[in-house]
């Protein structure tokens, strides 16, 4: 069954049942384990886990003026960098971990494994440290120095994949590893794990709905695993007539870390192409320029995927303005800018 909207809106208990059924299909012994009560309890007690989510939604008045938008068009930025691991992926990772513990797939001494060059890896590593389970990440050899060191700081293990194959190469390697010994570790599989979008159905979506007083008209979210758009979008679509805008790099070869150019990438299993109303392609330089402008105009130091979202939102806002429409756009601020200091994003000049 494709992961459609209805799937995301299942109750938590239904997810757990589905996960368990899935586990029973693939690896019978995993379902027998059952949830580890102590590990589940440690989530409830963890200061790190408890500080994930409930991020602010900021109206960008200065940035609206900078773009020359009329008063009738509002831009609101969801500040996901205030999560303890520094990105929206903390929500994803916590949801995946919680579901895996509940289904018995993750327990004491059992390693969580996934392919990630970026924020999800940091989030897993953080949770592994906070909740005491081992974490191993398959990372493209091209990952930046600060990524590698951040993972090391949390004590995660790393397996490098071909630097020339990028994040798809990491996914391929992890799949090969799973076919060798899939029962010996928990493959979190953020690209295909329904607990990824479920995180946003349960938290990001309701927060945005509440914080925008139920008046959000457009959601603008970059596409990586596509979990943010799928989950948040599914929730908002249930509440009202919200337009769902996905943002991807304009070209296959791009410099916007974490984003996928869907026509040329491995399409995530959680992606439902019928959900977005529109997909916008953004050039790397436009994304960088928007991130720089945000820092200088608003004082928010965000990363390049936030820049891509803002660039898309700016384009959309201008279209809406010239059509004379009123709108309240909510833009996902995926992570902070400090994570990209060694990239071209913040070069002086």
């Amino acid at each position: 069954m494709p992961w459609g909207v209805s799937y995301f809106l299942m109750k938590n208990s239904e997810y757990a049942m589905h996960d368990r059924a899935k586990a029973t299909r693939t690896t019978p012994e995993q379902a027998i384990c059952g949830p580890d009560a102590a590990l589940l309890a440690s989530i409830a007690e963890s200061a790190v886990a408890r500080s994930i989510g409930n991020t602010p939604l900021h109206r960008l008045r200065r940035y609206e003026r900078y773009l020359g938008l009329p008063e009738t068009i509002e831009l609101h930025l969801k500040a996901e960098w205030v999560n303890p691991g520094g990105s929206i992926k903390d929500r994803t990772a916590l949801s995946i971990v919680r579901a895996a513990i509940k289904s018995g797939q993750l327990g004491p001494g059992r390693t969580l494994l996934d392919a990630t060059s970026g924020n999800t890896g940091i989030a897993y590593a953080m949770l592994g440290a906070a909740l005491s389970f081992p974490v191993t990440l398959v990372v493209p050899g091209s990952a930046s120095e600060e990524r590698k060191r951040t993972l090391a700081a949390y004590g995660a293990r790393v397996i490098y994949s071909d630097p020339y194959e990028g994040s798809d190469g990491a996914i391929r390697l992890v799949r090969e590893m799973t076919s060798v010994a899939g029962d010996d570790f928990f493959y979190a599989d953020q690209y295909n794990n329904p607990a990824n979008p479920a995180a946003h159905v349960a938290t990001t979506g309701p927060e945005i709905w509440r914080q925008s007083d139920g008046r959000v008209t457009h959601l603008v979210a970059a596409l990586g695993t596509t979990g943010t758009l799928m989950g948040t979008g599914a929730y908002l679509r249930q509440q009202g007539a919200v337009q769902l805008i996905g943002v991807q790099p304009a070209e296959a070869f791009h410099g916007i870390e974490g984003l996928k150019h869907l026509p040329t990438a491995i399409v995530p299993g959680i992606y439902d192409p019928s959900l977005p109303d529109r997909i916008m392609g953004i050039e790397t330089e436009a994304a960088f320029e928007a991130a720089r402008a945000l820092a200088r105009v608003e004082g928010f130091f965000a990363g390049s995927s936030t820049g891509a979202n803002l660039a898309a939102a700016g384009e959309l806002a201008r279209e809406l303005a010239s059509a004379g429409q009123a709108a309240r756009l909510v833009v996902i601020g995926c992570d902070g800018g400090a994570r990209y200091l060694s990239t071209g994003l913040w070069e002086l000049g």
Partner: peptide
């Protein structure tokens, strides 16, 4: 040698 490191080496060997 952890299970996932073992799997990574075998995957590399096969490839």
């Amino acid at each position: 040698l952890s299970p996932e490191m073992r799997a990574a080496i075998i995957a590399h060997a096969r490839r």
